[in-house]
Design a protein around this nucleic acid. Structure first.
Lengths: 116, 116
DNA sequence: CAGGATCCTATACGATACTG
DNA sequence: CAGTATCGTATAGGATCCTG
């Protein structure tokens, strides 16, 4: 039998995990974070080139969401024409472990499903 | 300057992380996994009750996908009427760390955005 | 270069009713 | 109980073109 506090905790954990997924799910978010993280600072057009198949519309939209969620910082550089640089915030960097583990798990998963 | 092998690796990591997200993203997957994981074994109707807002259609659909991806195991119990039990496979259990970290990060994220 | 606007399709998801 | 079927809406995402 499971006690009340236990169940209470469990509900909170469910909510927390949902919160994370709300921010991270979607087809491109993690790839975008990976790209920026890998290069430390990265311009719009570079990210666009890094990620196979993404459209400028989606990149723009996702970057905005990531910015709202304080995961990336956007800096307009004073160049001609204008370039925009993205980098991870401290909060964004705190995702590094998770991204790493998702990477490892993804490799294992591919083996599990296709390989063997 | 970033060398070729480095970039090669990076592309593979991007693919791996995408593979993971393909399996885990969606509104309900992680909640379902959490529910089953928390109770070890869990019946369809119990999971349905655990997760606030999910419809039986979605639960059924998501469980099928999780089964195809070898994350959960489905067992029909010989009762009257029939009950069906779900549990995590070994592969499914290997997500435990990630789920834990997503939970912790979700809590921190909520503080970052709303709280302080 | 960095995006916004527009148009379009596919899928995700919800609600409800039904069945073995 | 554990789904399936059906119908409907909303959102995600793609393609293309446009602008400061």
């Amino acid at each position: 039998m499971v006690c009340k506090n236990f169940e209470q905790n469990y509900k909170q954990e469910m909510r927390a995990v949902q919160d994370s997924m709300d921010v991270l799910s979607g087809k491109w978010k993690i790839s975008i974070l990976s790209s920026i993280c890998f290069y430390n600072k990265r311009r719009f057009s570079d990210i666009l080139a890094d990620i196979d198949g993404i459209s400028n519309k989606m990149l723009s939209k996702e970057l905005k969401e990531l910015e709202v969620n304080k995961l990336v910082k956007r800096t307009v550089l004073d160049t001609q024409p204008v370039t925009v640089q993205y980098e991870l915030t401290k909060h964004g960097l705190s995702l590094k472990t998770i991204i790493k583990e998702l990477t490892d798990w993804g490799i294992r998963h591919r083996k599990e499903i296709i390989g063997k």
